[in-house]
C-alpha cells in the first residue's frame, strides 16, 4: 500500500534559477539603455575599426 501510494505522480518543479539570472541581466540591460549606450554601440558598429581587424 505504501509503495503504491509513493508511486503517485508528481509534477516537475519549475526551476527559479534561470529566471532570476535572466531577470537580473534584464535589469542591467535596461540600465544600459537608460544611460544611452545603444547609441554609442551603434556609432561603434557602423565604423570599420581598422586596428581591431589587424590593419593599421
Amino acid at each position: 500500500m505504501m509503495a503504491s501510494a509513493k508511486k503517485r505522480k508528481k509534477w516537475h518543479k519549475v526551476k527559479k534559477g534561470p529566471f532570476i539570472v535572466i531577470s537580473s541581466f534584464l535589469v542591467i540591460w535596461f540600465i544600459g539603455i537608460a544611460s544611452g549606450e545603444p547609441v554609442r554601440v551603434l556609432e561603434q558598429a557602423v565604423r570599420v575599426c581598422l586596428s581591431c581587424i589587424g590593419i593599421g
Binding site: P18, V21, I22, S24, F25, L26, V27, I28, W29, F30, I31, G32, I33, S35, G36, E37, P38, R40, V41
Partner: peptide
Amino acid sequence: GQYYFGLYVVGSAGILGGL
C-alpha cells in the same frame, strides 16, 4: 559626462546566456 560601462552589452549577453 557619459556613463558607458558596457551594461547594455553585458545585459544582452547575460540574457542570452541565461536563456
